[in-house]
């Protein structure tokens, strides 16, 4: 099936700053794609290029089969966008903003609008200036989710929402993709949210894609922590590939091992007779920390 979004080698500079440096991204139709990266890594820039608001300096981007810059208006009828910080007109009520944005997209489903207002517990009569950050975010989310569109571009959409509302958001997104076959690009910092919703994930750093794949695939890239008590003091572990942070004291061993090297390391351990073994699976947090931390200059 054709990809809803395909981006390759995208570059964008703002003056001296290189915001995107050859970014790749592929989002299949009907999937929820997690878009992760530290602050300033280029997530919002990528989304703005996909919306035809920024013009890329180099590389290619295709959105729903069209050119995001040239075909912007036609493409925007088929997508809805929620920014990380929804700003509203102070003298328009939330309900008015939801209707206006829906009408300016592909149209609004009034039944869905009503249902979402209830589920997100939003009073649509308040004026824009009276909403808190979280409630402004809800206005943007309801306007997007109640619109009749194929693609949702969500840029940290749950910032400012309380945990209860975050849960409602997760349910609604899950329904969207299951029942309506919508494609979602979800930029987020909340790992639990990504884990619960996303089929595939792309991690970007300094304007480049560093990992992409399913969560299962990505877990393979992480390390497992092992703590073991052996019958005899071990040897040769330090020289094995994929072993990190090795601590040996007498018969006790603590180490981290790359998931790909798990098998040979375990064989080596069992050859010394394992009396007890504790292993901790890799967590997503570790995965992200590894990519989020700025590497020292080589």
């Amino acid at each position: 099936m054709e990809n809803a979004i395909s981006v390759s080698g995208l570059t964008k500079r703002f003056g001296q700053t290189k915001a995107l440096d050859g970014l790749d991204l592929a989002v299949a139709q009907g999937e929820v794609h997690g878009f992760l990266g530290p602050n300033g890594s280029g997530k919002t820039t990528t989304i703005r290029i996909l919306l035809g608001l920024l013009r890329a300096d180099g590389g290619t981007a295709t959105l729903l089969g069209g050119d995001p810059w040239r075909d912007a208006v036609a493409l925007h009828r088929r997508l809805a966008y929620v920014p990380g910080d929804v700003t509203l007109w102070p003298n328009l009520s939330g309900g008015e903003v939801i209707d206006l944005l829906g009408r300016l997209r592909g149209g609004l489903n009034p039944k869905r609008r009503k249902e979402l207002l209830e589920r997100f517990d939003l009073d649509p009569k308040k004026k824009g200036r009276a909403y808190s950050k979280g409630n402004r975010q809800k206005v943007g989310l309801i306007a997007a989710l109640a619109s009749d569109v194929e693609l949702l571009l969500l840029d940290e959409p749950t910032s400012g929402l309380d945990p209860l509302m975050e849960e409602v958001f997760r349910q609604v997104i899950a329904e969207e993709t299951k029942n309506n076959g919508r494609t979602v690009l979800l930029s987020s910092h909340i790992l639990a949210e990504v884990e619960a919703l996303c089929d595939r994930v792309s991690i970007i750093r300094l304007g480049k894609t560093v990992e992409t794949g399913t969560l299962t695939q990505l877990r393979h890239l992480t390390r497992t922590f092992i703590s073991a008590e052996l019958a005899t003091p071990p040897n040769g572990l330090g020289s094995m590939a994929g072993v990190h942070d090795l601590h040996v004291s007498d018969n006790h061993v603590k180490l981290q091992v790359d998931s790909a090297q798990l098998d040979p390391v375990l064989r080596q351990l069992t050859s010394h007779g394992v009396r007890s073994l504790v292993s901790q699976p890799p967590t997503l947090e570790e995965l992200f920390l590894r990519h989020y931390e700025t590497e020292p200059v080589k």
Binding site: L51, L53, A72, V73, A74, H76, R77, L79, A80, Y81, P83, D85, V86, T87, L88, W89, L101, L104, R105, G106, G140, A143, L153
Partner: peptide
């Protein structure tokens, strides 16, 4: 500058 133009230009408004 207040980012209020963004949601409109991200909808089908040229």
């Amino acid at each position: 500058a207040s980012l209020r133009s963004e949601p409109l230009l991200a909808a089908s408004v040229s």
